[in-house]
Amino acid sequence: MINSLTDILATTILYMTPLLLTAMGGLFSERSGVVNIGLEGLMTIGAFTAVITTLETHNPWLGLIAAMIAGMLFSIPHAVASITFKADQVVSGVAINFLALGVAVYLVKALYEGAGQTPDVQEVLRKMPIPGLEKIPVIGPALFDVFPTTYLAFIIVFIGYFVLYRTPFGMRLRAVGEHPQAAETMGVNVYRMRYTGVIISGALAGLGGASLSIAIGSQFSESTIAGQGFIALAALIFGKWHPFGALGASAFFGFAVALALKGQLIGLTNYVPSEALSMLPYILTILALAGFVGRAEAPAAIGKPFETGGR
């Protein structure tokens, strides 16, 4: 029983990592007032780039960095369309998802003679136990013997909180998402802040994708991401657009995944089908939005294009 609990806890931590990284990315974009439905696509391109880079360089750390850069690059069309061209941000995000999956699978086929997936990466990221702490019963193996991307995710939550709520940059970013005209009259460059927010979201979502493809998994195919980006979006909303909220929501959603995967260990799947557990995050997010599980309040100017001098 103890072993099963450890297993479920470890699986939770494992699967919350990509969600958390990506939700933190979405946080920066949406706090600046730009909806990012394209997180799914940005994860996809990150996952793809990480695998390709690691296959070529045999260095997963370079893979991580490349994934971040690719995520940033692919977030730029979204930024240009929705900030400069004032296109509908949801439409633009949908297009990012099309684009990223199309480019990634196209390149896989082009590079590997029509194959639907990349070869396996040998030099994936390995779990990094923290000496001493990993020996703690139950939580030790789950929390302190994990992939480096997991430590990174937790660090990013705290840095993200600090940046958003303690620095001038963060205050300006949030102001731009709440009332861009006010921020502009105070000399804040709304366009630059929003571009920055979207590009940070690309970097972190790219990292989130990489954590799936070269840590949890070891290759890339069309189904590597399979909706994780949308769950991350749900975690962001369920977490009420706050770093610690996103942390809690990601943990909870990761737990739902763990139950769906490992439910048979504790006999859960005898009573509840795994699909029902997989649905849980989405149902909860709808309930949260409808105000049944605490009201989720979006940044006031989210989704609205900004025009200089306008009101």
Binding site: M171, R174, A182, A183, G187
Partner: peptide, 25 residues
């Protein structure tokens, strides 16, 4: 009024020219 509703009076006033110490507001 060009005021950010969920911010405090002080936050609204310093926005854009925040006094900092070690990079923090």
């Amino acid at each position: 009024f060009m005021l950010v509703d969920p911010f405090t009076v002080t936050e609204n006033i310093i926005l854009g020219s925040e006094p900092t110490q070690n990079g923090m507001i």
